[in-house]
Design a protein around this nucleic acid. Structure first.
Lengths: 190, 190
DNA sequence: TGGCAACCGGAGGCAACCTCCGTATAGTAT
DNA sequence: ATACTATACGGAGGTTGCCTCCGGTTGCCA
């Protein structure tokens, strides 16, 4: 299911080590304070210079993409696991709920990730497509069983989920988020 | 329906003139390039110094709030006008559609406004509450006529609308936005 | 017309982003 | 082991945008 750390090309040992340290620090910072991380802080936490961070991740976007790649692959795996579930509708809803938790954890990342997905050929774009394809199967199953409207599109549904998180970012109230999620779920139901 | 330019207190004529010039420049800039306006540019466009801008609008938030105040009051007026409509459901949907257009125009402002609304006592907060109250009447009418679920909350609905705009900010596709909007509408329908 | 409270404006401090280049070192060839 | 070099390190410093401060200016009233 899971995968080994990403190794982009042949790299010197110290370079690979720093690359990993930076990613670890970035993920920790994002989990704690959201995606508005200060890259200088990440570099310090990782114990490397800012120059090193920028060599490995030329843009802020590159770092964020890499930081979320793992989680995206995990969500794809979850979708694939849920395909075996006998309850098509419940499986779909469960997966969408996971999506929402993922989005909440990377609060403020929404916009960044949203932009990244469209960069053709990027690692995250590929992973995101794979994840969405896996989710699509859940959606189509639920449509085949008559639980979901036929004209519903997975991209739209995912965006609605991300939109909820973004709109509630400033004042996150768990029960409000839950209610909004349920409205969306009701909206796609046949 | 509409209202005269806002005059906060007794101000010297030059101060009032600059205040208005700044707001005009800010609204123009937002309409053209979204809410990521550079305040230095706004000041230059308005023909005043940056210091003057900051005296009138101590924080970026203050300027954005003021820039959107008019539109918020207008949306309230629209809700009040729609109360007379015989079709409760259609009136509600029409008003929500207006909300979406409003949000689209101030692209990237979503988060800022979302934050501002909660600043107790701010002009925009008061105006926003008034607008929401007016919208609430539309909602309750649609609930009374059995068109909308009883447990739907206007705050949730508005946030969903704003969420759509935010989630589609990076790559706005009008028909996708329309489809997402319709999913939300379907979600609140009884 | 004088006086002053209100107002103006831009120089400059600060924070975050990112680049550049002199220094250090892992890996390799001898 | 040693020397060599491609690769990598790291932080000084340039850039941009945010915001403050205060010496100079001006509308307004007596």
């Amino acid at each position: 299911m899971s995968q080994a750390p990403v190794v982009k090309a042949l790299r010197r040992a110290d370079a690979q080590r720093n690359y990993d340290l930076i990613l670890v620090a970035a993920r920790a910072a994002i989990a704690e304070r959201g995606a508005h991380i200060v890259l200088e802080d990440v570099a310090r936490d990782a114990g490397v210079g800012i120059g090193t961070l920028y060599r490995h991740f030329p843009t802020r976007q590159d770092l964020l993409e890499e930081a979320f790649l793992e989680e995206t692959l995990l969500l794809r795996d979850r979708a694939e696991a849920l395909v075996d579930s006998p309850e098509a509708w419940e499986a779909l809803v469960a997966w969408l709920r996971l999506q929402m938790e993922f989005a909440s954890r990377g609060r403020s990342l929404g916009a960044s990730v949203m932009a990244a997905k469209h960069v053709e050929g990027s690692d995250l774009q590929v992973a995101y497509s794979a994840m969405r394809d896996a989710g699509d199967i859940l959606l189509h199953r639920a449509q085949a069983s008559g639980d979901v409207k036929d004209d519903v599109d997975m991209i739209d549904v995912l965006r609605l989920v991300y939109g909820i998180v973004m709109a509630c970012e400033q004042a996150p109230e768990p029960d409000r988020i839950t209610r909004m999620f349920e409205l969306v779920i009701a909206g796609i139901r046949a």
